[in-house]
Amino acid sequence: MAPTLWLPLSAVFIGPNIAGLLSLVGLDCIFNIGATLFLLMADTCARSKGTSSPTRSQVPFLYKLWNLGASLLGFFVPLVILFSSQRGYLQPHLSFISFAVLLGPYLLLLSIQVLTEMLSWHWKSSVWLVTPIVYEAYRILQLMRGLNLGIEVGAPEWALVSIRLLVSWWMWVLSIQLIREAWFAGVNYENRLKQTQV
């Protein structure tokens, strides 16, 4: 995951065209490979010693509902912005390729996160708790990168304001996730202590 954090954009981004978009998607693919390996290692470490089955972890319904709601809102808001721009409701017009450069990798990685979370819920893997944090922390970096690229591609002010609002949204969601992770970890620790005392 490390190259995606400190590799200068000027070394990757070619311009608001297909090659520039593919270079950004490639950069995020490096992150996704690292995140997947991390989650697989975390799942392996959570398995009980001497057994091949992971520690079964039940995901609360409200947690699933919150995560899906936050992700869907973060997914549909950029699509509404794109639709509004294409229909001429937002001026000046933002071209599709500029939109794809600014928010395309964000939407792609958000889709991958939702899929990863749903699979961890289905398999009752213990990594369901850390999966959103791994992706959401990087999502904020993606959106900050989009703000920097917005200046390079000449994005209108409304597009930059929209990205800033998305950054604020994901900062808020990430802070709630961190609080919930601490709470769930504490509850699980108390349950294990009770089981060992019995």
Rank of each mutant, 00 (worst) to 15 (best):
R145G: 11
F99N: 04
I179V: 14
G26K: 09
V59M: 10
A185F: 05
P92E: 07
R145K: 13
F31I: 14
V114I: 10
Q177N: 12
W169I: 08
L90F: 08
Y89E: 11
A100D: 06
K49T: 09
I81F: 06
V153S: 06
V130H: 00
S23N: 15
C29T: 12
W172C: 15
L193K: 07
A182Q: 02
S53W: 10
D28P: 00
R47D: 07
G186Q: 03
L147C: 02
Y63T: 12
G69Y: 03
S85I: 09
F31P: 00
A182Y: 04
L129G: 06
S168H: 14
Q177D: 11
S10Y: 06
F38K: 04
L7F: 11
L62S: 13
F38I: 09
S48Q: 06
F38C: 10
F76R: 03
L9A: 10
L82I: 07
S23Y: 08
G34R: 08
S168N: 14
F61E: 06
V12A: 12
A2N: 10
T131E: 02
W172A: 15
V134F: 14
I176D: 01
M41F: 08
P92F: 07
L110R: 08
G74P: 01
C45F: 11
A70I: 11
P16D: 08
I81W: 02
I163K: 08
Q113G: 10
G154E: 01
Q91G: 02
I176P: 00
S95P: 00
L5G: 10
T196N: 00
L22A: 13
W123D: 11
T196V: 15
